[in-house]
Design a protein around this nucleic acid. Structure first.
Lengths: 344, 344
DNA sequence: GTTAGCACTCACGGGCATCGAGTGCTAACA
DNA sequence: TGTTAGCACTCGATGCCCGTGAGTGCTAAC
């Protein structure tokens, strides 16, 4: 037995209805609501076939059918293949970005808000990650008689700043001179490379050892912990509105997963650089998420680094709408981050 | 009719039991579990009095009694007056801060984690706020031929950085010179003051108009949005474990309140500079929180700014434990922030 | 003032009947 | 051969009844 065009249409209708209502859908519903020109009996036969093919599940004998993960997969694949991602929500997304926002973190926070409130699911936005940031300048800024603020500027912005101790007789000009020399030495390096170079540099440039040593420590410190990406989560409470989470335990598990940022980041970042990713139910590979789906899209910055936007919702997600919104938001963020710079 | 010592003891027992179990407590329970040397009938009479005095509520006639907000208030007040805040969880808090953490944001995030996992309630930690930060240095760091990174350092660290456009022929030294001149002009000012001064400065120091104008724009930008405090929230999912939130709608309202950061920050910041604050149920002034209590404590930094730690839980919160933990955590954070500087 | 006794209340949970949405199967029909 | 009407059957959901038990308030005795 094979899928034919009619089975396909019926399956489509079932998925649509189930996504809408969240209630198992019966044969009568299909034949009435979606005028197929077929009686409920015929639909019933087809549904029986579809179940045998693995596209439908039956919670119990006297309930309707619900789409299986396999069905959603088929649904999403055709959606993606035909490229029929509507972009009718285009303006509604752009509207939310009318006011200029400057800082990347703010943009990311805001994007998570917007996506979650448009989709009514949970949204996660991850800051770009990928290419190692490269040092552009090192600057020492006097703070007090004995300490200075070290600011390292990379092609991704100020990456880290920290107060370090310097000798006593360091005025602004001396610090500037040191900054310049050091900048010449390690410009263009990644943090790792800079760390490797430092001992040699310290040896070569005699004098100012204390400052340079402090800087060295600071760099290797930064190298370890640095570039922890920013992550924004929005609309976790949305999920409680879906009957899928009327079970408190499930809800709690889900929420506590949303709170363990590291794990969540890994899940969202997922496997990839693909423009779109859709993982349905078990495909997520996360036990707590067997009845969730995750849809992700990417955006990129001028440096070519990729950030990720993700939406987490029940398996019966409005995939097409979500894909559309993610698509637009991806472009929007790409524009913001790679077009004009911060302060245009 | 007045409160006497015995009524007090009975009320205490009722509160203790209810905090423990969350189930209305009956007269028999009290006379058996807390050996008062009184029969259930006597307790019953006293309970009836306590109800009349407004310290107890009765969900329905054949259920036990539950403490009213007024009862908790009394309970907490005696707790605070007698100063009997045990600190047996001292080491367990300190243990969580063994590894050195440097960045303030990380400390705050971590503190929220620790407090929520120790109390099993929801924890909120707000970064210090208070004194307006004062500018120490302005530094322009070349980024590309046409743009530079403006870094403003205040007595609270780098407060903001942003790329601005400069004229074409600006090398590192020129930018440094401008930075120095400007720093001399506005050192010690708050952002507002600096903004007020800028037009006059621009008029006076002819040349480099473009750079200064850009800086001006950036400053006034910063003035508006700046010093948005950092806030960390931990353990929101904990609340779902309490029967108080078995009602999904309540749970959703609560969670979505936790997501609206600004509102939440206002609530937690509350009215004050007091060392401890306990707001019980309606006292919170937040409709969504009539059956929550909020306990807050403060910590302070070297600069004398005050940050807030808050715990949100059901009204039947283990107040004494929470106060204890907040007390210790407050000291811990104060030590961290006012003792050694970042990079000691 | 305390307590034993007793009637009364009322949420909770199990058992039971009813209802209805939905199915599968069969037989008739185009 | 595919479609459809009809029908018996299944089974979760709903509502009702009723027994149970925790808890109360009141009264009378100590």
């Amino acid at each position: 037995m094979n899928m034919d065009e009619r089975k396909m249409r019926i399956l489509q209708a079932i998925i649509d209805d189930y996504i809408l209502t969240g209630v198992p859908v019966g044969s009568r519903t299909i034949s009435r609501k979606y005028d197929m020109g077929l009686s409920s009996a015929t639909i019933r036969n087809e549904m029986s076939d579809l179940e045998e093919l693995g596209f439908l599940d039956q919670p119990h004998v006297s309930a309707g059918r619900i789409p299986s993960a396999k069905a959603y997969r088929l649904y999403v694949d055709t959606l993606l293949q035909t490229g029929r991602i509507p972009d009718n929500s285009d303006e509604s997304v752009r509207a939310h970005f009318s006011g200029r926002i400057h800082q990347m973190e703010d943009v990311i926070d805001h994007a998570a808000q917007v996506v979650s409130s448009l989709t009514h699911y949970t949204a996660v936005v991850l800051s770009p990650k990928g290419v190692q940031p490269r040092i552009q300048t090192v600057q020492l800024v006097p703070v007090s008689a004995e300490s200075a603020l070290a600011v390292i500027v990379t092609d991704m912005g100020v990456i880290r700043d920290s107060v370090i101790r310097v000798g006593t007789d360091m005025d602004s000009d001396t610090l500037y001179a040191i900054s310049r020399t050091l900048t010449n030495e390690i410009r263009g390096c990644t943090l790792q490379e800079a760390c490797r170079k430092m001992p040699e540099i310290i040896r070569r440039l005699q004098g100012n050892d204390q400052v340079l040593q402090e800087l060295y420590g600071y760099l290797s410190d930064g190298q370890k912990t640095e570039h922890r990406p920013h992550m924004a989560v929005g609309g976790t409470s949305n999920m409680l509105a879906y009957p899928e989470y009327s079970d408190m335990d499930k809800a709690r598990n889900f929420l506590s997963l949303m709170e363990t940022r590291d794990k969540l980041a890994d899940i969202i970042r997922g496997n990839g650089e693909m423009a779109f990713t859709v993982r349905i139910g078990p495909e997520t590979g996360v036990p707590e998420m067997t009845d969730c789906s995750i849809v992700t899209a990417t955006y990129s910055t001028r440096g070519g680094q990729q950030g990720t936007i993700g939406v987490i919702g029940p398996t019966r997600m409005r995939y097409s709408q979500v894909l559309s919104i993610l698509n637009i938001m991806g472009h929007q963020l790409t524009d913001l981050f790679s077009g004009e710079d911060d302060n245009a």
